[in-house]
């Protein structure tokens, strides 16, 4: 049985981050914003997924979804930590997570939509995983070595997530009439939020030029092809082209994010001097 001392002994130290390369002010500002985007996408989505804990439709799926949630929040931790170092104002990943206001979050709207039922969760996850895997695949060859390394690591988990969500899209689409209807409705509702990730603005355009970060608009065609193929295999209709909602990348979110953040941030904000 462990003594108090044994229980409190420090864990192995995390790997010390390497020195950052020198960036021009313009690149530094853009890179900070970009890293927030990568981190926030996963933080918010991971948070939504974690709402399933204890409420999953099957115990095995509860565990599986929990795994994905853990991975995503772990990715967020890494991207936000790097963002903080790039910004250079001593904000670590917790500071960025718990003390930024809604207008400073840079996730796509797709991430912040409510948890929904299992069909909605799987459909949203599949759309995100398809994008994430493509993005990380390209990002691992960017010219910022630390970010490239992070992308390579993240890609492994993204690949597994995609396998999981794709398999469930197949089972729900080509399962019963009820499951088919539910997951079709989910894709129909989500479609208008699926385009935001592929819009390139001045941030990505500058970083594509300076650091070889992938231009997200270049990913769209492949994404459409892969997603359509899987939906068809699942006997689902690919929703028609429609107006795509944007704004998340500029901190203009849906009304859902504010409430999510109010819940997520309440404890540290209530005790601003405390450490946890």
């Amino acid at each position: 049985m462990e003594s108090p001392e044994e229980m409190l002994s420090p864990r192995a130290a995390t790997i010390a981050p390497s020195e950052l390369p020198t960036f021009s002010p313009a690149v530094r500002t853009a890179l900070f914003d970009y890293l927030l985007r990568l981190g926030d996408d996963r933080l918010i989505l991971g948070h939504r997924l974690s709402e399933w804990c204890g409420h999953g439709p099957i115990l095995e799926e509860d565990l599986a979804i929990g795994n994905v949630s853990l991975d995503l929040i772990g990715h967020a931790q890494a991207f936000l930590a790097l963002a903080g170092r790039v910004e250079g104002k001593e904000r670590d990943e917790d500071r960025l997570t718990f003390f930024r206001g809604e207008r400073e979050f840079r996730n796509i709207k797709l991430s912040e939509l409510p948890r929904g039922d299992f069909a909605f969760t799987i459909a949203r996850q599949f759309l995100f995983d398809s994008y994430a895997a493509l993005l990380m695949e390209k990002l691992q060859s960017c010219r910022f070595p630390e970010l490239a390394g992070l992308a390579a690591k993240t890609l492994k988990e993204d690949t597994y997530h995609l396998r999981h969500s794709a398999q469930w899209v197949l089972r729900l689409g080509d399962g019963t009439l009820e499951s088919h209807a539910k997951v079709q409705a989910a894709f129909n509702d989500l479609w208008a939020y699926s385009g935001e990730a592929f819009v390139a603005d001045e941030v990505e355009l500058l970083l594509a030029k300076e650091l070889g970060i992938p231009d997200p608009s270049s990913l769209k065609a492949v994404w459409v092809e892969r997603v359509s193929a899987l939906l068809k295999e699942a006997t689902l209709q690919v929703p028609a082209d429609c107006f795509m909602h944007t704004g998340g990348r500029k901190g203009l979110h849906t009304e859902y994010l504010g409430k999510l953040l109010a819940e997520m941030q309440i404890v540290p904000r209530s005790y601003p001097d405390a450490r946890w």
């Binding site: 948070h47 974690s50 709402e51 804990c53 204890g54 999953g56 115990l59 509860d62 565990l63 929990g66 795994n67 949630s69 853990l70 929040i73 772990g74 967020a76 931790q77 936000l80 990943e93 917790d94 997570t97 718990f98 819940e263 997520m264 309440i266 404890v267 540290p268 405390a274 946890w276």
Partner: peptide, 20 residues
């Protein structure tokens, strides 16, 4: 959803998962 740090959040989810 109210864990006060990312490390605590991750640990808590992992714990609940272990219970499953």
């Amino acid at each position: 959803t109210r864990a006060p740090s990312l490390r605590r959040k991750i640990s808590l989810i992992a714990k609940v998962q272990d219970e499953a």
